[in-house]
Design a binder for these strands. Structure first.
Lengths: 192, 192
DNA sequence: CATTTACACTAGCGCTTGCTTGGTTACTCT
DNA sequence: AGAGTAACCAAGCAAGCGCTAGTGTAAATG
């Protein structure tokens, strides 16, 4: 296996793996399929990754890291009004979801295939991301923008947003930003 | 294979299969695991199902049929006010989701493992169920109870509800009905 | 009583899986 | 020029996979 964990070659392989994992699912994707997609033989794959599990972990880590970076940057750059921050966070969520779509679909639907060690490590990343959401929602609740239980609201909103990967086509007439705004409008009484 | 497609034995086997599919995922569940769970040898399994795919189809069909029955019954029995019908539908959705939890988790996350023939057949069932939702949401929109695009609203609501299987624990303090009511309240400006 | 049917068993075929081994090539750095 | 290393390949192993063939047996059916 490669010692430099972030070699450019490895990054590109991770990207291709994400695509295959989405197309076929992790379990149905064989190391031979992965190798062919990458233009190498199946044995050579284990020069870059110690085993198949590590490829899955790399895909998910990549996606989650990007989500964190994008969300933090968006929140830093936007105004301090709770309403704007809420909209910004929803937009950032969909932006990541559809620019790194493959990685995120894998993260959402193949999470359980991770072994316990990788799962524990990646859970921390995921928690850091969700903490951003909870903070934004807390502010919106405090400002009286939305109503309900903070825990439930964040789960419902994240559920609605994550589920979009199942039906939304970004090449259609509606932009991800439109989508985010419509969801925020749906849960905000004052903006009817 | 059994000619009587709905033999009680087959129903019980389907229930056990659903549990294993949730625990391990469809692809990782081997026919030997299924057989052991059912107390028979792997060869005997093919007396009840023509192949592994058919077991998956049986699990999903069972769950979706139940959802339809429960939702129709609930809607027939409840009042005609759009607000009540909306709440009723949300409650029925979560009721099915957590009484037939295994079957529904499989339906939601292993749908893509179905072969095209089974998928086409089950899509009709699924569509019939979603038609109930769209009707209820249309009424609520017309009555001015909620606002937004009918297509988007139904997708968001279904997403939020379906995602509950990922985090909600029915044995906790909150009942599924509470959950449904909170979601409806969240999107209804007038009920703040 | 003879036959069919439902359900289970044993044994294993043919194939695919993730991964290993041992060695080769091409490039960089001193 | 020589050493080191990243990237690759050919070959294949051991295990596990879905599924089939053929058989036994007890209960229902004519």
């Amino acid at each position: 296996m490669n010692v430099i964990n972030a070699s450019p070659r490895r990054k590109e392989l991770t990207r291709l793996a994400a695509q295959l994992f989405v197309q076929e699912g992790f379990d149905r994707t064989t190391v031979r399929m992965l190798a062919q997609e990458m233009g190498i033989k199946s044995g050579s794959l284990f020069h870059h990754f110690k085993d198949k599990q590590e490829i899955l972990a790399a895909v998910i880590e990549e996606g989650t890291q990007n989500a964190l970076v994008i969300a933090r940057k968006a929140l830093n750059e936007c105004a301090a009004e709770p309403e704007i921050r809420l909209r910004t966070m929803a937009r950032a969520h969909l932006e990541t979801l559809f620019t790194d779509r493959n990685a995120h679909v894998v993260a959402l639907f193949e999470w359980r295939r991770l072994d316990p060690a990788a799962s524990a490590h990646l859970s921390h990343l995921r928690d850091a991301y969700e903490a951003l959401w909870v903070a934004v929602i807390d502010d919106a609740l405090e400002a009286g923008l939305i109503h309900g239980d903070r825990f439930l609201v964040s789960r419902f909103v994240l559920g609605a947003l994550n589920w979009t990967v199942r039906w939304y086509d970004p090449s259609g007439p509606r932009s991800p930003d439109d989508l985010a705004d419509e969801l925020v409008a749906m849960i905000m009484p004052t903006s009817a």
